[in-house]
Design a protein around this nucleic acid. Structure first.
Length: 807
DNA sequence: GCTTAGGGTTTG
């Protein structure tokens, strides 16, 4: 066993085999004789387990020599294969390790991480790691972690399981660590678009050590950001790295980052907020949250943000407003109006903003009574984009909203028309200073529950005529149903006698049914369309990615290395083909080629060519001159097909693959007698290859007024796009057509309002997720785009012909 | 395994 964990508290020195001798990290170099040597160190950080290929794993860790406290030296350790997996399972930050059976390599990250110029490489049978779990007497560098693990040991004796994670107290952070931390949020900004590829969340946290630590989270997807609702929330972050900036330690997310947040209110349930499908959370986490809550409450370290309802607003106050969106309308490119309420009445009259009903989303008018409770909020600049995504009915918190006395701009308004106090407008200024931003609050949140109670407590005002409110609160139909009014850019080709259903309704019904929906496309995956192309086996039903050229070229290159002689079967006529050199000075190569004698006699010399010893690039160049090209290799004196991870057949620009599991491939002469043409089916059958079919597989997120739903587009994807997957694999125009379709359904950067409506037929069926759990899946079927974008025809590049010389 | 930001003296 490559990773050996020592019994609790046992000294490592007594358990490491005696023939091994220890060398200090500082003496490691590529000239070190590593035989029977060990290196000892404390695990400073442990990277995530990364899978490189099917069963190849790699994990990087940093260990620090523990004897030289004054002048600690750290070195990167790279673990491969099973060892990496075992290490990932068995070893934690702070554990002491003795490493043996390593080799020394140059550290490619030395300049950046300032660790040792070399690293230790551990792979294969010789590599071994002896581990001693952290135990008292405490290492002064991990006081909190040790304390917690001591506390745990009492629980562990009951549960027989220690917590998987250790958390570093914020005053214990040192540069260049990857750590897990807990903290109380004392400042935050909602995620905003960075100038790079990601959204950025800025926050500042603290804990019982009173250290204030600034954190930055970069994540491409909004749902991967921490769900912070207010200061005082508690955050747990896994795998953040420390960095030194402006004379203080900062934290930034790193690979494998995950985050949970909790309400910071003492006495509230401890419910983790996260979009992660799985996360570790146990009694220990509950305890840490409780401790932080009661500490923060006693200290009152959390800056008090005025929680002002509309009834408490004063002119020129900046505050966070928790409210419900009733309607919205774009004012201009840099300003959007949100009409919101929180069930309380503002003592000041609220400024009216005139908006055309046609551009209003949600009701354009309300009863007089209701109208008097509605605040008009003007959202500026960078917040407009987010505001565009909001839907009437959403519950919001608007951070750093300003109550603005309208009289300062329009003096005649100072004479208040009603109520006495001067009228107020509300503004959310551009930028992210002071945490300015908007967040949608989930229905389950305490704040939304409170709001709903406030709404229910309102006296019934003449709501019977208030069709506006009905629109907000009513059950479906809440989607456009009138075919005259709404133009859809897809149509259903099925003949089901089914009414349109809202997504929320559909989610409540059982699998095995067909549904008709009218929806918009909210997002889709993959964004890179070539990743949507898959190879599907009709026999074993497996699905695989289409190998890229680099992978295929490697198979060709590997095949041509085996130059052993082999005799072609009697039905072949052999020769050489001269392939023009790709560049000047490069060798003109002459791979051997073979034709079917039968086809040659039938004057069908161009119909089929077997080729051996060519590169991928050469094969492609030849493909324009022959209908079918089958690459071969020599193996043990026989001709065989190449490994089936490469195409077994080239037809013009099209490539065909076989299933590795289901094929029983051998080089045989195809029988073309009576066949219309020699195509991929005929050849696959002759060669014993189970032909893989190109398919398109995408995941679409649909939305209507009642919610969102993830559906697959697969079996009927070709019908949907009016493009065959095989064409898409071979030609750019077909790919362009699919891309244009997706972009027209979901314009990049476009708002909900700009997205066309789609009429779709969905089937609901029982499927399994990655872990084998049953869940209801949805697939788009028998639906098609009605006006596909015009493909731009590109002229085919002229083919390069090669001369064939018969032997 | 690159980059992004790095609170803040707001104001249409």
């Amino acid at each position: 066993m490559p990773v050996q964990v020592m019994s609790e508290g046992a000294g490592l020195s007594t358990q490491v085999p005696s023939h091994l001798s220890r060398i200090p990290i500082s003496l490691i170099s590529t000239s070190t004789d590593c035989c029977n040597k060990t290196v000892k160190g404390t695990v400073l950080s442990k990277g995530p387990l990364v899978s490189l290929a099917a069963d190849r794993c790699i994990l990087k860790a940093v260990i620090e020599e523990e004897d030289s406290q004054q002048n600690a030296s750290s070195i990167n350790v790279v673990l491969m294969g099973e060892l990496a997996k075992d290490f990932n399972q068995a070893v934690n930050q702070g554990d002491v390790t003795v490493v043996s059976g390593f080799s020394v390599g140059k550290s490619p990250t030395a300049l950046k991480d300032k660790f040792h110029p070399f690293n230790l490489l551990l792979s294969g049978d010789d590599a071994c790691i002896y581990v001693s779990r952290r135990r008292p007497p405490p290492d002064p560098r991990y006081p909190l972690a040790v304390k917690r693990s001591c506390d745990l040991s009492a629980e562990a004796s009951r549960e027989k399981k220690a917590s998987k994670y250790t958390y570093v107290r914020l005053d214990e952070l040192k540069p260049k660590m990857v750590v897990n931390v807990y903290g109380v949020v004392v400042f935050f900004k909602q995620p905003f678009k960075s100038c790079g590829t990601d959204y950025c969340t800025s926050l500042k946290i603290t804990d019982q050590s009173n250290s204030m630590i600034y954190c930055t989270i970069f994540k491409e997807r909004l749902q991967d950001h921490p769900e912070i609702f207010q200061m005082g929330d508690i955050i747990r972050m896994h795998r953040v790295k420390t960095n030194y900036f402006n004379q203080s330690i900062t934290l930034i997310n790193t690979f494998g980052f995950s985050v949970l947040t909790f309400d910071g209110e003492e006495g509230e349930d401890v419910v983790p907020r996260t979009s992660s499908r799985s996360f570790h959370f146990d009694q220990e986490d509950r305890r840490i949250v409780d401790e932080l809550r009661s500490w923060a409450t006693k200290q009152s370290i959390v800056p008090s943000v005025p929680k002002i309802p509309l009834s408490g607003v004063q002119p020129n106050v900046f505050f966070d407003l928790t409210c419900q969106l009733l309607a919205k309308a774009p004012m201009d490119a840099t300003c959007t109006l949100l009409r919101v309420w929180d069930g309380t009445r503002c003592p000041h009259s609220l400024v009216k903003v005139m908006v055309e009903p046609a551009i209003t989303e949600g009701p354009s008018s309300f009863s007089t009574e209701r109208e008097s409770l509605i605040a008009n909020v003007l959202i500026y600049d960078n917040h407009v984009e987010f505001a565009q995504q909001l839907k009437p009915g959403d519950f919001l918190r608007i951070y750093n909203l300003r109550a603005f006395p309208a009289s300062s701009k329009v003096p005649e308004l100072a004479a208040a028309p009603s109520g006495g106090a001067e009228p107020l407008a509300f503004q959310l200024h551009g930028g992210t200073s002071y945490g300015r931003g908007i967040r949608i609050l989930p229905e389950s949140s305490r704040a939304v529950q409170d709001l709903k109670r406030a709404f229910q407590a309102l006296p019934e005002c003449d709501d019977l005529n208030d069709s506006a409110m009905m629109e907000i609160w009513s059950t479906p139909p809440e989607f456009p149903q009138d075919a005259e009014r709404v133009e859809c850019c897809t149509e259903r080709l099925c003949h089901h006698d089914t009414q349109l259903a809202a997504l929320s309704e559909l989610k409540r019904s059982d699998p095995g049914r067909v549904h008709h929906v009218r929806v918009q496309l909210r997002s889709y995956e993959p964004r890179r369309l070539h990743q949507a192309l898959k190879l599907h086996c009709g026999k074993c039903l497996s699905m695989q990615d289409v190998p890229d050229d680099e992978q295929v070229a490697a198979v060709f290159s590997e095949a041509s290395r085996d130059s052993g002689r082999c005799s072609p079967p009697p039905w072949m006529v052999s020769g050489q083909v001269g392939i023009p050199a790709a560049s000047q000075g490069s060798w003109k190569r002459e791979p051997s080629v073979h034709l079917s004698r039968t086809l040659l006699c039938e004057s069908k010399a161009k119909a089929l060519l077997f080729i051996m010893g060519s590169t991928l690039e050469e094969t492609c160049r030849l493909a324009s001159g022959y209908e079918n090209i089958i690459p071969l290799r020599s193996s043990g004196g026989h001709m065989t097909l190449l490994d089936l991870s490469a195409p077994f057949l080239f037809r013009g620009r099209k490539r065909y693959y076989g299933c590795r599991r289901c094929s029983e491939a051998a080089v045989r002469e195809p029988c073309a007698e009576g066949a219309q043409q020699i195509d991929e089916r005929l050849i696959a059958e002759a060669l014993g290859v189970q032909l893989l079919k190109f398919v398109l597989l995408m995941k679409l997120e649909l939305q209507d007024a009642t919610g969102t739903l993830e559906v697959f587009l697969w079996r009927d994807a070709e019908l949907f796009f009016k493009v065959s997957a095989e064409e898409a694999a071979a030609n750019q125009e077909a790919q362009n057509s699919i891309r244009q379709t997706m972009e027209s359904l979901c314009p990049p950067g476009g708002s909900t309002g700009e997205r066309p409506w789609l009429d779709l037929c969905l089937t609901a069926y029982r499927g399994e997720d990655d872990r084998g759990h049953h869940q209801t899946c949805y697939q788009i079927c028998q639906s098609t785009i009605t006006n596909p974008p015009c493909p731009q025809s590109n002229p085919q590049p002229p083919g390069q012909r090669s001369s064939l010389q018969h032997a």
